[in-house]
Simulated scan of single mutants.
Amino acid sequence: MSIKTWRWTLNSTVVSALIGAATALGVQLVSVNATNLSTRQLAAQSCIQRIDTQEAKLREVMERLFGSLGALIGESISGQKAMEAASKEVIKQAFEVNAYAPPELALGALTVAMVVHQGMTATSGAEQEAAISSALNYTKLLPQTYRQQLGEFDTLREACRNH
């Protein structure tokens, strides 16, 4: 074998090895990038799913609270006994909201519970009127705070997608 042939064989072997190494490196980079993209998509889906679960549970407990508030208003024409049972349900549902709600909404629900409690324990007409007035004010704020929280869930979902 001549030196020229030997060099040609060596050069083509080296070039082939370099091409093979470059190809392997390229495949590895594409694979790592695909894995990274897949991991980010999975993390985003998991994040969104957590937020969807939180929202669904919050909607469920708020639905019960709003329903019990409606029942309380409806029972106001039925008499004291019916009002007591409906008031107890409102208080129970308001406290349940606290297990799933963010602080602002939890505070609103607790405030409604306390105002309803004041109405139940009022002994004079003036105390009852004050409790009714407070109840009307606080129950107006609760739906607004709830809607703001629902909007916050949308913001959190968008943050999951952009991460």
Rank of each mutant, 00 (worst) to 15 (best):
S2W: 06
K4L: 11
R7E: 11
W8N: 13
W8D: 12
T9W: 07
S12K: 07
S16D: 12
L18W: 07
I19M: 12
A22V: 09
A24V: 12
A24N: 04
L25D: 08
G26E: 12
V27W: 06
V27H: 06
V32R: 10
N33G: 06
Q45H: 08
C47M: 01
C47Q: 09
I48F: 03
Q49P: 01
I51T: 01
T53N: 08
A56M: 02
K57Q: 06
V61R: 00
R64F: 00
F66P: 00
F66M: 04
G70V: 03
L72D: 01
G74T: 09
Q80L: 06
E84W: 00
A86D: 04
K88H: 05
I91M: 10
Q93W: 02
V97P: 08
N98P: 11
Y100L: 11
P103S: 14
P103Y: 14
E104D: 13
T111F: 03
M114V: 01
Q118V: 01
Q118T: 08
G119M: 07
M120F: 00
T121D: 01
A122T: 05
A122R: 01
G125D: 11
E129G: 12
A131N: 04
I132M: 10
I132L: 15
S133Y: 05
L136A: 11
N137T: 14
Y138L: 04
Y138D: 03
T145A: 15
T145Q: 15
R147A: 15
Q149S: 07
G151L: 12
F153D: 04
R161T: 05
